[in-house]
Design a protein around this nucleic acid. Sequence first.
DNA 1: TACTATCCTCTTTTT
DNA 2: GAGGATAGTA
Length: 786
Amino acid sequence: MLLWVALCCRIMNDWLDIMNDWLDILNPPQREAVTHVDGPALVIAGAGSGKTRVITYRVAYLVRECGVAPWNILAVTFTNKAAEEMRERVARLIGEKTPGRLSISTFHSTCAGVLRREATRVGLTANFTICDEHDQHAVVKTVVRELGIDDKEIKPRQAQWIINQAKMRMLGPSDVGRILQSKHEQEYVRIFEAYNKVMARSDACDFEDLILKCVELFQGNDEARQEWAARWPYIMVDEYQDTNFVQYQLLAALAREHRNLCVVGDEDQSIYSWRGAEISNLLDFRENFPEARLIRLEQNYRSHGNILSAASHVIERNRERLGKTLWTERPDGPPLYLIRARTDRDEAGEVVSRIQELHDSHGLPYHEIAVFFRANALSRVVEDRMREWSVPYRMIGGIRFYDRMEIKDLLSYMKLAANPNNDISMLRVINTPRRGIGQKSIDAVLEEAGAKNQTMFVTLKQMAAENRLPRGGKKSVAEFLGLLETWRADVGKLSPSTLLERILSDTGYIEALGDENAIEVVTRRENIDELKASIVQWEKEYLNATLDDYLEMVSLTSATDDFDQKAGAVSLMTVHAAKGLEFSCVFLMGMDNEIFPNRRSIEEGSLEEERRLFYVALTRAKDMCVLSRADSRFYNGRQSWNQPSMFLRELPREKIEDVDEMDYNAVSDFCAVRRQLREDVVREAVGDDEDLLIGGMKSAEREAQRRLDERIIDARRRARQRRDEEKTAGTDELRPGVRVRHPLLGVGEILSAENAGDDRKLSVLFEDGSEETLYARFARLKVIEA
DNA sequence: TACTATCCTCTTTTT
DNA sequence: GAGGATAGTA
């Protein structure tokens, strides 16, 4: 036990990185990247090569060894989760008590922060609203209707898509007009223009605007650009392969003089081209920054050899790559397994029963297991099976908490209190709960607002003052406006949670939900309680934060951000959501043509990105990877029959076996070692801090795995040596005093030997103390020492 | 104006 | 299969 405490303490130390030679933990290329200080650098970091470690260590290195102030470093990621994790790790490395002073955040929140400061320079107010895609869709829809465009001819979704794609490339309506030629397509230009007008009028930004407006500010106002560039003399970017044009422009504007831009990425994991990501940003980095240092991280610390070589084999078919060769010190481990099922239900059943087997009989914790699929729609079948068999699971992604109807309603009220000119929120709640303001009244207000180019709030006030409201809604509108005014007046004084309470009681929202015994209403009420609790929690965490801060956090939180691997549950998610994560055992479902790769990519011949996605899925697995498919499945509302995925044929044949051959040793070895790393021992080493405990366990597991692998490698090496050294024993060599090895019984010493016919009868004392009588011809003994 | 029933379309991935 | 739009009814 004492030994384990000692071991755990050592692991803790590793993990807390409080050793003096804190950089010793890095391998040579990692170290090179971490200690690269001035000038641009491009770090090509293969899957599982310690990318996050490099980024966090480099930030820490700049602070600890180069005297750079934490707030002078900007580290950009794509998800809040990645930012959060990085912030914690850096804070630990530099012993920073207030990690808030570190500028580690997503592109979107970084830019939102800049815009709040620079509001007046970009034509916004400091409490502008951030619209998510739902809000955006609503705006586009109203715009389409207002312009009198037939939404059967022009789909609002399509228009929204074009607007976003244009903004990512810094193209305005007129550019779109030039690119899209047909008369029919010119409607998009009108929609785009009108959309921008509504957004400007509402003092609102969509996701793309956040970045776009920053870049426009920096490009149009050199003073502002230089101020911000001076604030962040060191810039790091994670997942650089996922940056789009406008994001590149942002980085380029900030780094123009100091050029301290260190980007980390992997072209093989570029899976967001549909969101404008330009893989060329990575591939051409050295054309834009010719003096950039190129560093490759090619050692994989995550996967068994077989998983890694299967994945590498797949990705080698791609042409759009710089090329790299990942290698691992880990042993081969088991091959990949394939589940072939008749139907999607059978497929899911087989997956779930394998999961139970892994967990119940081999001790693999649920949180080390994940199920991936190409599209969200595929999750249903597994979820059903999981519930049926009582396997705890968590669906990552899917609908965000903040996207639930009642939550959106209440947040809209809060947004209106912060900024009553937000027409999007106004439309959402003007008649929720019902207050008799019907479609007719709303249309009238909208029409007048559009004509005068002013917001609904302003228009409503005018109409109320001039007594021009439609009869039905007159009184309620007056009341509603009154409420808005009082909330607005109190925003500065009230905390977000008290404001929410006020809104709930003033509007009677909860009562209006209806019968409190209806299941649906019960869940809605629960959600509202959860919202209240989460705001209170948030206020405790960020003491001086304002309502705007809260609303910004909510808008920029994604469905995958609240993912928490410590929950004792299997993780279910799309392959996209899986990027950056790792699990002992990964199940990848729906390996069928038209599913993965999906139909669109086959039709468009854009298979490289699908293949990268497949590569990402495979490289998440540490010990075991199970693929599954079904001959027929229920998809898109009807039965379909699919051929096995073409990607299955791209796997090396010798690396994939039927699931019935499954060898659980890969995980049970891991689990055995893990069992020795008892949680209570780790707890003793780290105290009661839950995060430390989880981090400690994870790092202890990693250490356990490393030791296990080391043992396996070592045993193999010795076995090889023995094979070379040992000669097959001739019978004449078998005489008393000679040490021999028996394939089953181990090492022993010959006590006596006598000829028996043409064989030799031996008595051998083995190391475990047993004495055996053996016949030399059958025993296949090998002489170790004569 | 409010509520319900039925039909239609669209489903890749998400900050 | 689910959400949204539309039409019909109270």
